[in-house]
Nucleic acid binder design. Structure first.
Lengths: 344, 344
DNA sequence: TAGAGGCTGGACAACGTTGTCAGATCGCGA
DNA sequence: TCGCGATCTGACAACGTTGTCCAGCCTCTA
C-alpha cells in the first residue's frame, strides 16, 4: 500500500515508554521506574542519566498502565444534573478541591435529569474504575449500583438520597427550609400562597412540597390544589402557571418557588405583573441581594465538600453503616418575602 | 499474622474479570470479550451463557486495561479557571455535550488562575492519556505542552490563546467587544469613563483594555491613568477602586467592567452610590436583564462547543496549521449603559 | 464418502507499568 | 588478596483486556 502516512499501529503517536528511556540511558527498565517514582536505591549518577533520557525523549509515565498494575486510579467520579446550573458549579468545585487535597482527579458528567443517562454515566465511570462516586440522583432506583458498591466503589449521594439502596447521603434540609420560608410568608400576613416546584418524583421537590403543606397546616390554612404547580422547570410552563395563580378568581398573594430556576422564572414573571407579589425562593441566586429576593439559602459548596470528605473517609477504610447527613438552610430576608398582601 | 481482614492483594475488591466469566460460562476468554464488545461470531446459545455469567458475577469490563490495549481513552480533559464561576458552567457543559456525542468522557479541573496549577493539571491529564485537551490558560507560557502535542494529544485553547506555542484557539472578540461597549457609553455623552479590569497579564484583560483605549482614542478623548484599575478581581479592591474613581476631583461618569465578576462588584458598589452612574460590563450575567445592566455578551456555550468540535475534528485526523477562531460579541442595551452623564 | 469452505471458539502475545527476587558490583576489613 | 555485607541493578511475571491466528467442527456438494 502507498499509505505512507499511516501510523504503524494504533497507539498514542508512538510515545516513548520506560523501555525506550531505559535503552537510551543504558539502564534497566526497573531502574527507570524507580527514578520516575522517586524510589530509593539509585545512584545519583544513574539517576541523572535517566533524567536526561526522560527529558530528551519527552517521556511521560502512562498512568493507564500504572492504574492497571496498582489497582487504584486516584480518580473520583461526579454525576450531577447540569454543570451549567449555577447551583452545581460551587458544589462541583468543592468536590474538586477535596479531591485535589487527596491527590485525586475528578471526572464529571451531567445526567440532564434523565435517569437512564445517570445510570449510563455512573456505570461508565465504574468501568474506568474510579475509586469513588458522588452522585446527584436523577432517578429513584439505584439498585444498578449494588454490584459496584459491593466491588468496592465508595459511593456518596448528594442533594437527594439514593433510591432502593442504602447508601451515604448528604442533603439539605428541604422540608425544614420550605416550611420556614412558607411560614415566613404567613407571618407577613399571607393566607393564599402558591407553590411552584420541581417534579415531585425528585426527592427535594417532594420534600419542599411537604414543607409547604406543613407550614400551611401549622397555620390552619387550607391548600387548594390549583395553588400548586409541579412538573417541569421549563420557563414557559412555570411562567404560565404563575400567571394563572395570579389571575384566578381568588388569586394567591405570595409565591414559594421550589428551586433556583423556578425562582428566576418567577421573578421575571412577577416583574411583568402590575401589583407586587411576595416571593420566597429556595436556593440563593447571584445578585438576589440587589434584586431584593428573599430566599432559603443552602450551601452548595458545603454539600459538595461534606460529601467528598465522607467519600475519602470511606476510601481510607472507614467502615460503619451508611449515614445520612442533613445540612441546615438559612432564610435571607431581602424584601420580596416581606411584602404584605394587598389590603383588599 | 492475625491480620485476617487484610485483602489478599491490592486490587479492586477482587472484581471478577473476563477470565472468571469465561470459567463460569465454560467458554474461552476471547469469547467473553467478543460478547462484551458485540463482535460477531458467537452462537446465540453461547452468548446467552456468557450473559448469564456476567449477570451472576456482576462483571464490568475494566476500561483501564482496555485503554492500555487500545491506545485510546475516549476521554478528554478540560482545564479551566474556576468551575464555580458562572461563566464556565455553560462552557464546560457544552464541551461535555460534544464529548458525549463522540462517546467520550470529560475530566476537568480548575487552575484557580495559577499557572503552576494549570501545568500540573494539564500534565496529569496527559499522563492519563486523555485523547485531547481543552485549556483555558492561566499562564502565558505553554511550551511545557510541546512534547505532549508532538506525541499526539490534540489541544485546543479557549477564551485566551496559548503562550509561546502555536496551537488552535477559540476566542471571543475581547478587543472589539470592549471597544463597542465603551463607544456605546461615549455615544451616550460620557467623556470620563473608568475601566475596571482583570490582570493585564491575562490575554482577555489586555485585549479589553486595548479596546477601551481604542474607543477613547477614536472619539478623541483623553485617558487618565487613574481611571484605570487593573489587578485582582478581589471584590474589596475592585470596590475601593470604583469608589475612588467616583469621588476624585474630576470623577468618571461611566464605568466599563472587564468581566463578569468585576461587573457584579461594580453593580453592588454603584447601588450604594448616591447618583446614578452608567455601566457596561463584559460578559452577561444571570438576572442582568431584570437589573437593567447593559453588557457585552459572549456566548460561553458557543466557545466550548466550537472548541470541542475542533478538538474532535483534530482527533478524527484533520490536519493543517493551527487556527484561531474568534467569536463575535453582542451588546445588550438594558438601561445601565444608557444613563446620561450628570449635566454638571 | 471425502473434500472444500464457512463458521465458531480458544491459545497466545502484547499493551506499559510495578513488585519480587536474585544477581552484580563495590568498598572495606582481615 | 580474598571474602563479606551493603548497595545497586535488572530479568521476569503480573495486572485485564484485545488482536492475531489456527484448530476443530459442521454443512454442502461432487
Amino acid at each position: 500500500m502507498a499509505d505512507i502516512a499511516r501510523r504503524t499501529d494504533h497507539r498514542y503517536g508512538n510515545r516513548p515508554t520506560m523501555k525506550d528511556v531505559a535503552a537510551r540511558a543504558g539502564v534497566g527498565l526497573k531502574t527507570v521506574s524507580r527514578v520516575v517514582n522517586g524510589e530509593p536505591g539509585v545512584t545519583p549518577d544513574t539517576e541523572r542519566r535517566v533524567h536526561e533520557a526522560i527529558e530528551a525523549l519527552g517521556f511521560r509515565r502512562n498512568d493507564s498502565a500504572r492504574v492497571l498494575r496498582k489497582g487504584r486510579t486516584a480518580t473520583i467520579g461526579l454525576v450531577l444534573e447540569d454543570l451549567a446550573d449555577p447551583f452545581y458549579g460551587p458544589l462541583s468545585r468543592a468536590v474538586e478541591e477535596v479531591a485535589r487535597a487527596h491527590g485525586a482527579l475528578l471526572i464529571n458528567g451531567s445526567s440532564a435529569e434523565e435517569p437512564e443517562r445517570e445510570q449510563e454515566l455512573a456505570l461508565a465511570l465504574c468501568a474506568r474504575r474510579v475509586d469513588g462516586l458522588i452522585v446527584i440522583p436523577a432517578g429513584d432506583d439505584h439498585r444498578y449500583l449494588e454490584p459496584e458498591i459491593r466491588a468496592g466503589v465508595a459511593t456518596v449521594f448528594v442533594d437527594r438520597p439514593a433510591g432502593r439502596i442504602d447508601a451515604d447521603a448528604v442533603l439539605s434540609d428541604s422540608f425544614g427550609g420550605a416550611r420556614e420560608g412558607v411560614a415566613h410568608l404567613i407571618a407577613h400576613g399571607h393566607r393564599r400562597i402558591g407553590f411552584v416546584g420541581d417534579r415531585p418524583r425528585i426527592h427535594t421537590g417532594a420534600e419542599r412540597l411537604r414543607g409547604y403543606r406543613a407550614a400551611m397546616e401549622d397555620a390552619g390554612l387550607p391548600v387548594r390544589e390549583e395553588w400548586i404547580s409541579l412538573g417541569s422547570t421549563n420557563p414557559e410552563r412555570v411562567s404560565a402557571a404563575v400567571r394563572e395563580m395570579l389571575t384566578a378568581p381568588e388569586p394567591v398573594t405570595a409565591l414559594f418557588a421550589g428551586n433556583n430556576r423556578v425562582t428566576v422564572t418567577a421573578v421575571r414573571t412577577l416583574a411583568a405583573h402590575p401589583s407586587p407579589v411576595a416571593l420566597v425562593g429556595f436556593d440563593d441566586i447571584e445578585l438576589a441581594d440587589l434584586l431584593g429576593i428573599t430566599v432559603i439559602a443552602q450551601d452548595a459548596a458545603a454539600l459538595g465538600r461534606t460529601a467528598a470528605e465522607r467519600l475519602f473517609r470511606r476510601l481510607d477504610g472507614a467502615g460503619g453503616a451508611p449515614e445520612r447527613v442533613v445540612l441546615g438552610t438559612t432564610l435571607l430576608a431581602r424584601g420580596s418575602g416581606e411584602i404584605a398582601p394587598p389590603t383588599a
